[in-house]
Nucleic acid binder design. Structure first.
Lengths: 250, 250
DNA sequence: CGTTTCGTTGATATTAATCAACGAGCGTGG
DNA sequence: CCACGCTCGTTGATTAATATCAACGAAACG
C-alpha cells in the first residue's frame, strides 16, 4: 500500500483515503452510467435518496479499492475507467477474475469481507457507498434487490463463460474470445466500434486468460500477422470479426 | 436423448418425461433439504404455498434435466444425488461448470433459456418447479428473492474459486483442491466425514478441472501412493488433510 | 538523460495432452 | 453358467502446447 500511495501522490494530489481532487460527478442525475448501473433501479424522484449515501470519487491508476480479506465497509459502482478484480495465491500467483467497466457494481453480494482485490487499471471514477447504508436501502427498496440480483446473474453468466475459456480453450481461442467479449462489453457502455480499448497491461490480460505475458503477446502478434486485428495504442482494432469468432470457439 | 431414454428404461420404469416411479418425497415438510434448499426461505405455514407448485420427481443416472439453449420452463432444487452442469463447445469439448449437490438450486437467475446443460450423475430426486409459478411466488415473497440472491452469491464465490483453479493451479493442486472442496460441500449436506463420495466419473472430474482423464487418474494415483488419500469405491478417503491443503494452493 | 517498465521475440524446458495398451467390472445373451 | 462386448480406470511412451529463461528495443518517467 505504501508503494501505491507513492504512485498516487506522484500522479495527482490526494486529499484523503486515495481519492483524487479532480472533481467527480456532482450528482447521480448527471452521471454517464445513470441508466446502466445499479442506480437504473431508481425512478428520477428516488435518486436523491440514493445520491445522499453515495460518495463520488476519483482514483489514480493502481489505486486499490479494497483487498482480499478486508472488511467490506463500502461497495462500489464504477462510473468511469476499468477496475481489475483478482485473487492472489499465497505464492504470488494471481488470477484476474474480471474487469469491471463503467456501470459495473462491486459488492453485489453485500459481503461482510471482500474475497478478492479490486484495483484501478487506469484513472477511474467510482461511486463509493457505505455498505450499511446500502444494505438499509436494499431492505427498503425491493427493485434495488431485484436489480442487484440481475447484476449477480449477469456476473454469473460471465463467470461460466470464463470457466469454459480457462478450462477448455487454447491460447488463440482465449485471446480471440477475450477481444470479442471486450468489444461487446464496451459497446454496452459507449457507442459500438471495431476498436476495442485495452487499458490493462499484458500481464493483466495474461492473468485473466490463465496464460503468460509471452503467450498473450505472441498470440496477439499472430492475429495481427494474420490481419485479423491491428494493434493500436491501448487497444486493438478488429479487422476480421468472423475470423476471430471462428478462432474464439463457441 | 434416445440413447439416454434407453438407459432410463433399462434401469427403471418411466411413466412420463423421464421421471421414475420410485416414489419421490410426498411433501416438502418431510424433505431432507427442508432447511438447506431455497425452501428454507419459508416458514412452516408458508410451505404449503410452495408445495402446491413443486413437483417431486426422480431421475435415473444420465437423465437430462435441461439442455443448453432450451427454453427454461422449469427450475429445480436438488433433493438427493448429484447433478452435473456443463457447457459444450461446438466441436464437442465439454467444461463442467459445477456439480449440484442436495440443497442446490438450478435456475437462480430465473432465465428464459438455459445457458448450460444439467444431467443426473447417478439416480437423483429433484423438486421441479414451473418457472412461471416460481417467478410469481418470488414476486410475492421478498424473502424468497433474498434467499435466491444468497444462493446466487454463493454460486458466484464458488465460480471465482474455480476460475483461480482453472487459470493458475497445477494438476495436483486442482485435484487436491477439488477433493477438499467436495468434502466441505458434502459436510453441509450430511454429517462430516473424511470419506468423500465421488459419484461422478473420471471424465466428469477431468472436465470440471480442465484436465484429461489420464492426468486426473495419474494425480489421484500419486496422492494415493503418497498416502494422502485412499481410493474407495465411488469416492476417496482423505488420510492426510494438511498434506492435501498444502497441495491445494490457497 | 539515465532508469525503469513494458512489450516483443527467440531458445529451451516442462507440464499435461495425446496415443496406445491392458485389466477389471458389468450387463447381455448364448 | 460362461463367453462376449462394452465401459471405465489405470499406466506407459511420446508429442505438443505453453511456460520459462533470456535478450532487446521502445516508451514513460523522474
Amino acid at each position: 500500500m505504501g508503494l501505491e500511495m507513492g504512485i498516487l501522490v506522484r500522479n495527482a494530489v490526494e486529499p484523503e483515503g486515495g481519492c483524487l481532487r479532480a472533481e467527480p460527478v456532482s450528482h447521480c442525475a448527471t452521471c454517464h452510467t445513470r441508466f446502466l448501473a445499479v442506480c437504473s433501479a431508481f425512478e428520477d424522484h428516488e435518486l436523491s435518496d440514493f445520491n445522499r449515501i453515495v460518495q463520488h470519487r476519483c482514483h489514480a491508476a493502481k489505486a486499490a479499492l479494497f483487498e482480499q480479506g478486508q472488511n467490506a465497509d463500502f461497495v462500489f459502482s464504477v462510473s468511469e475507467g476499468v477496475v481489475r478484480l483478482f485473487r492472489l495465491l499465497s505464492d504470488g500467483r494471481r488470477q484476474i477474475i474480471g474487469f469491471a467497466l463503467p456501470g459495473d457494481f462491486l459488492g453485489v453480494s453485500l459481503p461482510l469481507t471482500h474475497d478478492y482485490c479490486a484495483e484501478a487499471v487506469g484513472a477511474i471514477r467510482v461511486c463509493r457507498i457505505p455498505r450499511n447504508a446500502f444494505v438499509a436501502l436494499v431492505d427498503e427498496k425491493p427493485h434495488l434487490l431485484r436489480k442487484l440480483h440481475e447484476f449477480a446473474c449477469r456476473d454469473m453468466r460471465t463467470a461460466r463463460e470464463q470457466m469454459v475459456l480457462l478450462g477448455r480453450k487454447t491460447a488463440e481461442e482465449r485471446v480471440a474470445a477475450f477481444l470479442l467479449t471486450m468489444r461487446e462489453r464496451w459497446a454496452r457502455v459507449a457507442h459500438c466500434s471495431v476498436t476495442v480499448p485495452l487499458p490493462m497491461s499484458r500481464v493483466d490480460i495474461a492473468d485473466y486468460l490463465g496464460l503468460t505475458i509471452e503467450t498473450v503477446s505472441r498470440t496477439i502478434s499472430k492475429l495481427a500477422r494474420d490481419k485479423a486485428i491491428v494493434v493500436v495504442p491501448d487497444g486493438v482494432r478488429l479487422l476480421d470479426i468472423p475470423r476471430l469468432q471462428a478462432a474464439g470457439a463457441r
